[in-house]
Nucleic acid binder design. Sequence first.
DNA 1: CTGTTAGCGCATTCAT
DNA 2: ATGAATGCGCTAACAG
Lengths: 345, 345
Amino acid sequence: MATMADVARKAGVSRSTVSYTLSGIRPISDDVRERVRAAMRELDYSPNALARGLASKRSGIIAMLYPLLERGVNLSGLDHIGAAAAQAREAGYNMLLWTTAVEDIDGLEELTQQGLVEGVILMEVRQNDPRVRFLTDAGIPFSSIGRSGLEGDAPYVDTDFDGTARDALAHLESIGHRAVAFINHSRSTIEKGYGLALKMQLAMETAALALELDLVSVACDPQFRAGSDAFVTLSRERPEVTAIVSVNEKALVGVVDGITRSGLAVPDDISIVALLSSVETAETSVPSLTTVSPPPHEMGREAMRYLVECLESGTRAGHQRLVPGQLVVRESTGAARRHEHTATR
Amino acid sequence: MATMADVARKAGVSRSTVSYTLSGIRPISDDVRERVRAAMRELDYSPNALARGLASKRSGIIAMLYPLLERGVNLSGLDHIGAAAAQAREAGYNMLLWTTAVEDIDGLEELTQQGLVEGVILMEVRQNDPRVRFLTDAGIPFSSIGRSGLEGDAPYVDTDFDGTARDALAHLESIGHRAVAFINHSRSTIEKGYGLALKMQLAMETAALALELDLVSVACDPQFRAGSDAFVTLSRERPEVTAIVSVNEKALVGVVDGITRSGLAVPDDISIVALLSSVETAETSVPSLTTVSPPPHEMGREAMRYLVECLESGTRAGHQRLVPGQLVVRESTGAARRHEHTATR
DNA sequence: CTGTTAGCGCATTCAT
DNA sequence: ATGAATGCGCTAACAG
């Protein structure tokens, strides 16, 4: 590994000149610049990140906090990560992956005390997320995917829940559905501070009101069985329902089973729209699922972009954004069947 | 941020003594050790990773290479990562995540030239993987999950394909199956150097021979449609088949559909064993899938452990390991139906 | 057992 | 437009 001193010697200049040609923060004559560059090339020089970081107090490392031991991770998490990593790289940063639980503030403190990390990206943010509190107090720049409710003016990217609900219901309404069931997460999940469930609930109710649709909300455990049973009950008690909107990916598989068990078919009798689902899941389902989801790669990129901007310019303005969902119509939605109480049980 | 000098001053010792109490590589009197520790506590000192890395030439950072733009990533990838990250942390390392394509050797070179990374973990390893070649030439310690065929004595952890095939077939054999179909990846996948497909093929053939089972192999594109059609064809041409073993997760969903289309049921008419599938997928399938897979967290942990050992002791011996599959019987396998040509089409 | 000192490779201030 | 010199915070000889 060649060092800056090697380059300087070879180019016949001082070390600082080499440094400045690299950073460009002070004028360098064309002649010298060329000599330095040539020397770098010949020596296959590349700056040492540790030394640079130590001297400049800028490590160029961003930590991605992605708690992995939680509730079953889903595939869009990977998209977020991939997008954030790509964006980081383009901006000249490296991305550290930190996977301990949301509650592990000691670990987080240890990480940030090392002086290795310039900024942090938070994923799987919860209502009142302790990490947000810690990072704010510690004065460490961060940006989050999702909201905790206490970020203040810190940057974040979150789902536009209202838009997502509206798009889903508008799609159903446009093809004739009038009564829709909303399969949400379980109450215990909501209570654990998984804010998504609550926000989605409100958004659905608002959108249904605006579109004058009948909305039946069902809280459901994230299991096959729960979903299946939920539908059977639903179809008995609310036979007028012709469409289902779900944020509960796990339960949804069961719902489809419940529909089949009830002697009904998707989308002939019941249409389904999945919210915030990964493309993977939507496309490998049978039938494939119509979805409304904000593109995960956009969320990942934006969150990283905001953080980098904070790091480099100190600006925090306009760095809070709600990403609208994107409706992708697949096989699970179709025109509403005429409301004539088709066989159930 | 307190520095070592601060601690030294407060404890009334020299800087090096502080350093040595931390590393423990030279004897320190109990008295001094206590004073130093107290000073550290009071100042809330924690060593600067960059400075330490620069001075010691050991950054404490390991890069995890996990190409993300490839063929649809699966969920066990996340398990590998999570396990590796946990292991890294326990060993005192941080884990950098690098997500560019396998072919992006320039990017990899850039990363490793920075002097930021001490060692590398490779995932999604391909036959003749260019990354292995590069890292070997560059003399950068690495460990891989999967094999490229050119690691030499470099550490790796891979699936025990023979064991996996044997366990899957032995299970089927024990419940009366005599003719089994093997749904592999597509030929093009095999040709792209995705060695898993080839190794699994050989292992299945060997195991079938040993158990005196009839084996029909089918190469299949990773799509719903392909899987579905493949089964329909299969059941027409080989009606004696009562069980299916698959490594092709994507196609498998289709296979189940094909079975249904043929008027058959799982596991009453056809049993299914999924190989190398994630627990997630297995449990959310309908019916849930009997699987044989090596525990991904074990593979992740081991790969990381091997790398850390190389880094710290230079020992490479005995660091190549094949992890046996683990049979988990779920709903998709049952006793073979008596061979009596039940209705097809 | 402890202290002194010389770097690690680079950024940056102060000269010129 | 360029050079010289200092220091970032720590490790690891070397000296005692």
